[in-house]
Amino acid sequence: MATSFIHGLMAEFNTADEVLNAAQRASQNGYTEMDAYSPFPVEGLSEAVGFHKTRLPLIVLIAGLCGAVGGYFLQYYAAVIGYPLNIGGRPLHSWPSFIPITFELTVLCAGVTAAVAMIILNGLPMPYHPVFNVPAFERATRDKFFLCIEAADPKFDRAATENFLKSLHPVEISVVEK
């Protein structure tokens, strides 16, 4: 099978420490295009596969600020411009009573954005992905840990990469078909 028909090579491990160690070794060996799969978030694993920073907090901050400004402006517009009510000469721009809704809309915008942005940045929904072609992979949602070095990696070589993965003592090595 030519390299262009495979997504990569996948090694299966039993513990979180093994896969973390494997990812770090792969990174030290110059592999850049890889991903690890674990049944729960493993600390340091995303850094080991070369993923350091996400824009998510910044996006959420911007959304929260939009919610705050939008929420306040909505109330300002309604109470001062759209439908001014003179109640005993009290000020129209009574800002303390606008705070609760400003706060709620800040949280609403930031919270909805946090969830939606996480899903979109993760590329979900994605009904098909090559890793699901490996029969053993369904245990990634149960108790097994996987490291997949992808064919897109410039250093990827079918035989050499397989030898490298073998040196990490995995349970099994599988070819991930596209």
């Binding site: 674990s38 049944p39 729960f40 993923f51 996400t54 998510l56 940045l121 979900l124 992905h129």
Partner: peptide
């Protein structure tokens, strides 16, 4: 299509904490 990818977990944990 969630596949337990380490990169996904990273964003996931960030979003969950936020």
């Amino acid at each position: 299509g969630w596949r337990n990818s380490a990169k996904h977990w990273h964003r996931y944990e960030t979003a969950y904490l936020l």
